[in-house]
């Protein structure tokens, strides 16, 4: 970019015919391709190892593709791998994660979107103060709030249950999601809101008939953010659930880092790929929206 425009400044007008293979481009694309190889390598190693049999893993080199492809490690990781005394594989963790993620995503988005809407269109005394506390709360290390939440959940009788974990995810998802919705709703022209008020619509009427239909993109962004975030959570899963309700990440770690037994690296890698699959699919399907979602964390209120 720099070079061509420089020429345009000094030389004859109009774009200079450019050779695609000039040294600068070779350098540029060379570096970028190298970087991409570095980024892709772990994914490649993971998949390749998971397709090998154990003898081949021991003899071969982790970067070599499998000589003989086998799906046995995947089957074993899914339905037979052991954590402690349980040997029913990652499938349990997978379904736990599904049971945790689906309601957590729905509840947290529902609450945060209403919050964002109230903060923009229905300001009440102190609403901005609460919002500021909320945003500050998102920077505070979770560790300091862990035990008080344990007490609150215990008082409510849901400590150690899936619902307890769902409440926790809703709480910790709230700052970023509220910020996301608040910023988006503030871009919807206020006239629309006022017009609806004149026509007699109330709080919920405006939310469901105007705000919701107008902001589907931001709901998708929130969905992506929450699905990947909650699926990938480890700390809350360990602290707020019991072993038979552990989410997939926790179970994966217990399978791979268990000290007893012979290490089956191919099964471990198959389990790792399986756990990473959901966020990866979300990521590759959603494309640019994912970038928007994570960049939302950087957008100041």
């Amino acid at each position: 970019m720099a070079d061509t425009s420089m020429n345009a400044m000094t030389g004859p007008r109009g774009a200079k015919p450019k050779k695609a293979m000039n040294p600068r481009n070779i350098m540029l694309y060379g570096i970028l391709i190298l970087v991409c190889v570095y980024y892709l390598l772990p994914l490649y190693v993971m998949v390749m190892t998971s397709l090998k049999g154990m003898p081949e893993v021991r003899l071969g080199n982790i970067f070599a593709p499998p000589v003989e492809i086998t799906f046995q490690p995947w089957v074993k990781a899914w339905s037979e791998a052991c954590t402690g005394l349980n040997c029913d594989g990652l499938s349990r963790g997978f379904w736990n994660s599904v049971l945790i993620t689906v309601p957590s995503v729905i509840v947290s988005i529902a609450i945060a979107s209403v919050n964002g809407y109230a903060l923009i269109n229905w300001k009440f005394k102190g609403s901005d103060v609460f919002f500021t506390i909320l945003i500050f709360g998102s920077f505070i290390p979770y560790q300091i709030m862990l035990y008080p939440i344990v007490i609150l959940l215990r008082e409510a009788g849901i400590y150690g249950t899936l619902w307890g974990l769902i409440v926790v995810h809703t709480i910790f998802g709230m700052p970023i999601l509220t910020l996301l919705f608040r910023n988006y709703f503030s871009s919807i022209p206020e006239e629309l809101f006022k017009a609806a008020r004149v026509d007699g619509a109330g709080f919920w009427g405006i939310y469901f008939r105007i705000m919701l239909p107008m902001s589907l993109p931001i709901f998708v962004v929130a969905l992506i953010l929450q699905v990947t975030g909650i699926w990938n959570d480890f700390l809350f899963g360990v602290v707020f659930t019991k072993p038979d309700l552990y989410p997939m990440t926790v179970q994966l770690n217990n399978i791979v880092n268990s000290v007893q037994g012979v290490k089956e690296y191919n099964v471990n890698m198959a389990a790792t790929v399986l756990t990473g699959l959901v966020p990866l699919v979300v990521y590759f399907v959603s494309g640019k929206l994912f970038v928007r979602g994570i960049a939302a964390g950087a957008v100041k209120g």
């Binding site: 480890f234 756990t275 990473g276 966020p279």
Partner: peptide, 20 residues
Amino acid sequence: IMLYPFALSFIVTGLVWQWI
């Protein structure tokens, strides 16, 4: 390509690199 690791759990990242 450069951003996909960010979608993964730290557990997944950690275990892959432990293996490499």
